[in-house]
Design a protein around this nucleic acid. Sequence first.
RNA 1: GCCAAAGUGGCGGAAUUGGUAGACGCGCUGGACUCAAAAUCCAGUGUCCGUUGAGGACGUGAGGGUUCGAGUCCCUCCUUUGGUACCA
Length: 859
Amino acid sequence: MAYPFQAIESRWQRFWEEHQTFRTPTRPAGPKCYVLDMFPYPSGAGLHVGHPEGYTATDILCRYLRMKGISVLHPMGWDAFGLPAERYAMQTNIHPRITTEKNIETFRRQIRMLGLSYDWSREVNTTDPGYYRWTQWIFLKMYGSWYDPREDRARPIESLVDELEKLGSAGIPGADPLTAPEWSSCGRKKRHDFLAKYRLAYMTEIPVNWCEALGTVLANEEVAEWTGKGYTVERRPMRQWMMRITAYAERLLRDAGGLNWPSSTLEQQRNWIGRSEGAEIDFPLDGRDEVLRVFTTCPDTIFGATFMVMAPEHPLVDLLTAPGQRAEVDEYRSRARLKSEVERGIDSDKTGVFTGGWVVNPATSEKIPVWIADYVLMGYGTGAIMAVPAHDERDYAFALKFHLPIVEVVSGGDVSRAAFTGNGTAVNSSNAGVSLDGLSTPEAKKRVVAWLKESRHGCPAVQYKLRDWLFARQRYWGEPIPIVHLEDGTMEPVPETELPLLLPDLKKFQPSGTTESPLALATEWVTVVDRKTGLLGRRETNTMPQWAGSCWYYLRYIDPENSDAFCDPDLERRWMPVDLYVGGAEHAVLHLMYARFWHKVLFDLGCVSTPEPFMKLRHQGTILGEDSRKMSKSRGNVVNPDDVVNQYGADAVRLFEMFMGPLEEMKPWSTRNVEGVWRFLNRCWRLFVDETGRPDTRIADGPADPALEREFHATVKKVGEDIEALRFNTAISQLMIFVNAVMQQEERPRRLLEPFVKLLSPFAPHLAEELWSTLGHESTITYEPWPEFDAAMLQASTVEVVVQVNGKVRSRLSVAVDAPDAELEARARADEAVRKHIDGKNVLKAIVVKNKLVNLVVQ
RNA sequence: GCCAAAGUGGCGGAAUUGGUAGACGCGCUGGACUCAAAAUCCAGUGUCCGUUGAGGACGUGAGGGUUCGAGUCCCUCCUUUGGUACCA
């Protein structure tokens, strides 16, 4: 008879809820552990079998830690703003709030059905005004801050205003010159515009990916997804909100070194930030005062720079274009504008046109032509390059196509055949001021940078691939950005006391028809009069991108009801940082980078106490369909957790998902194997309960068989160690080994079975609670102390030692533990099976490894 | 192209620092129980040769190397997955 999992599981889920078993104390008593799951977007499709994988892993760890006496914070919530609910609303006119609420209910029911030990009193929902009030509050903090490069941290914008008032801009690196009196005489608009260049949240005109049919801009990483579905995306310049994440590039890179994260994830973040060292060099325009500034990582090749290439959008293009080239240049620029960066990359065939302009190469003093081409991107470096065709593949291809000169300045390759990009020896590289000839590439770099600096042609520079974060979507279903645009062209933040700025109710959710979000149609909401200035204003109609709410949710869990602060500072210090964060690898870059960025800003402003939010990170692997292909509706290989729980129970699903293989690996679903672990649970049940459902009479109080006792201690050790290392598959295997061993016994010693139930409880909590109560206990097993193992008990009195001859196993000996080497060798030599292989031969050497093996090397 | 991770029986996967390859589970084979089946229990199960019992050879993607000894370390290559893609 199968064990009655349905009755057991519903009984204990009710018990946990009624007794608030997993309620976390506000303040941790003793050591704490914050174990966080990436919260899901509650889609209409319900839970996927991929979700329980990570959730079960963290749940097992949390249940284990509770039994070790640690205060555990383990919450769950909903990342519920987003496009799918809004698109559904466009089609059905059902308000996204209603759809979202319904989806959350499904998700909550499914997650509860798995017996996960969340503290539900801390549930958060990013679409709840009580939550997004603080998302808006943090946005205003970003808007109200600037990055001070001298202190390498964010500071309130008031500190900048203060400095400008007293000292002007002289002390601020890179600032436009402005004296204190000049600042004081500036009007409201001028001050506003000056400060806008420093704020961490700012508006600027940039080319974005606009999708007319969706009525919104798309992030670069979203473009492929939608064009794949047949939507068209065009490039157009729009005024957009941005976050100055680039100010944090160096710190995001540096601090990543101290994180216990998967190396591949750290590597991806490093690549994304894309730090490169080189130099900025100014090329004077021929016959003018202006210079064309370039960034290069190979300043040592400057003598080989035979032409220049600017991005088509470069601001100096107009100035450089000769009248005769105007038509061709304009035509090329307008064509380039329509291409997205992705499209530009796709066909790597080089295109470009000559501007008719010339600059002077400061190293060779020669006039070289300036071209525009779309392989140079405005968004990176200075938007212009010195082209060194002999030593750069892209420039080489361009030079071949347009018949531009190729001059070798680093020997080591054959530049008549291909660009040589490796290190070599500098040649053809000298002028009156400097000679690089004969220097190795690294030495030449140092020498030329020193010369550039001294001759004021350039300076060392560092560039990052990382770009500022496009922080606005033309959508309804997102956090409203709490900013008012006033009639004088300035902006005012919505006062903190007026937060949350609520999303107005709309009747229709269609795109506004302009480039604004549907919020533009809520005229009453949009139009305001600014109290401070009396000016007429219009609310910002863009909303925040979906990443916003997930940038700080881990902080809200700590103090979810607080209406005075996003989180009480004392509680924040007690619970942060997150000790373990588990979620999908698809968030390796964006979510994890954005959250780190926000956290660092909050750290700089004194709102949080740690520079990093997530100390240890692990990704759960993808679960494939039974056919080892990605699960998808079209392939018909999607497994629904509801069905599996109905058939085998939540404990079996949990156990199976952990037994499949290593947490981080991709692995296929197998219903047969679900049945396998389900059989194991049945065996556990029958260990305690006989056919009539009563406690098994073979459970005895006497002493246990010594071999079983030893196996038990080995199990306690292995299961504990494996849980801590998140190796759940091998922990379960050890539990199976122990159960198999007990099954062999006539008597079942209570003194081992009781603690065994504890070992089982993190994995199969419902069954464990039931068995615990069968054994006569009245309260939950949740906070029972985790069993201890006795290291002395692990030692058997004899061990098996392998005898090898020339590395091949020939015999096995049973010997006393720690038998001396000499004895092992003597017994090995005397062994009959071994003698067959050594008799008549010369034993050159004997290698003895205590308690393991003897290897006889013979000739 | 570049970067990262990974390739072990029929299948999912074990193997702490180089030291018994294949734990545990699935599947399969045989047996017990049963009128029969299911469930359960017991035994076996890497491949090949040999076979009455032994015993032996081979074996962790391929090929080399280091070592008394390599799934594990080094080199070259192949395959798969993930990321990235004119970033100067």
